[in-house]
Computed example of a mutant assay.
Amino acid sequence: MPQRRLETVQELAAKAKALRRDILLQVYSAQSGHPGGSLSWIDIGVALYCHEMTVFPEDPTDPERDRFVLSKGHACPAQYALLADQGFFPKDWLTTFRQYPTRLQGHAENHYTPGVEVTTGSLGQGLPQAVGIALGLKVQQKPQRVYCVVGDGESQEGVIWEAAMAAPHHKLDNLCVFHDLNGLQIDGEVKKVMNINPVVEKWKAFGWAVKEIDGHDFPQILEALDWARTVKGQPAMICARTVKGKGVSFMENQAGWHGVAPKTEDYEKALAELAD
Rank of each mutant, 00 (worst) to 15 (best):
G87C: 12
L39E: 03
A30R: 04
E64T: 14
A75N: 08
E64A: 15
D43W: 01
S29F: 07
P63A: 09
V55N: 01
S32T: 09
Y80S: 03
P77Q: 08
W41C: 14
L82H: 00
Y28C: 07
T95F: 07
E58D: 14
A78F: 06
V69I: 15
Y80K: 06
Q31F: 12
A78E: 01
I44P: 06
E64N: 15
S32A: 14
L70H: 00
D22K: 06
G33F: 03
K72G: 10
R98Y: 08
H34R: 04
T95K: 15
G87D: 06
A75Y: 01
S32L: 10
R20K: 02
L24T: 07
C50M: 09
L94D: 07
P60G: 12
P60T: 05
I42K: 00
Q31W: 15
D92S: 10
D62V: 11
L24F: 08
S38W: 00
T54S: 11
A84C: 10
D66K: 00
L70D: 02
C76P: 05
Y80E: 06
K72S: 14
Y49I: 12
R21M: 11
P60V: 10
A81W: 00
T96S: 15
T102Y: 05
T54D: 15
C50T: 04
A78K: 02
M53G: 04
V69S: 02
D85T: 08
Y49Q: 11
D22P: 07
Q79K: 05
L39H: 00
S29I: 09
Q99M: 15
R98C: 14
T61F: 09
Y80A: 06
S71F: 04
C76H: 04
Y100K: 13
Y100I: 14
H51P: 07
G73Q: 01
T95E: 15
L94S: 11
D22L: 05
R65D: 10
L94P: 05
S29M: 12
T96L: 13
A75T: 12
H34E: 05
E52I: 10
P101I: 14
Q79N: 10
G36I: 07
P90T: 13
I42S: 02
G37C: 07
D85G: 09
Q26P: 00
Q86F: 06
K72Q: 14
G36K: 02
E64W: 08
A81F: 00
W41K: 13
Y49E: 04
A30M: 07
E52C: 10
F89L: 12
G33I: 05
P35V: 12
L70I: 11
D43Y: 02
Q31D: 14
Q99P: 08
S38D: 03
T54N: 12
G73T: 06
